[in-house]
Amino acid sequence: MDATMINPFITATKNVLETMAFISCKPGKPFVKKEDIARGDVTGVIGITGAANGTIAITFEEACILQIVSNMFGEKMTKIDHEVADAVGELTNMISGQARKELEALGKLFDAAIPSVVSGKGHTITHYTDGPKIAIPFKTEDGGFLIEVCLEKTVD
């Protein structure tokens, strides 16, 4: 998977968090993730189909997602509960939508399913396809999160 496929996810993530939660984030160097164990405490997963089939997962450290959702709601969130999990699903949905919009400009059309959310220390992330998992780490002032993009084949 080349950088042109990864960059739309970076741009989309920054845009969604800045617009909806007034939080700036800094992307790190993408890498290939081997293990299925999530590096965060809560994860949103969404299936995509079209130019390629696969999944996008976004996994947040607890402090990071609590700050993001607190800003989105204008109310202090103190634990990962169903409200925070719901927000992770919606964030996943928005990031997927924005990234797919940018990918469309590159001639790659994707449709997305409805996201699901998994939480808990050391949970696993199941991608629907067995392609390489490209991970993009992000940092915020309140901790980090990681985006995993797993597509069944390289998109031309």
Binding site: V69, M72, F73, E83, D86, A87, G89, N93
Partner: peptide, 12 residues
């Protein structure tokens, strides 16, 4: 909206 989060943000 199927997400309570979005309904809450829009209501706010």
């Amino acid at each position: 909206d199927d997400f309570a989060t979005m309904r809450r943000i829009l209501k706010n």
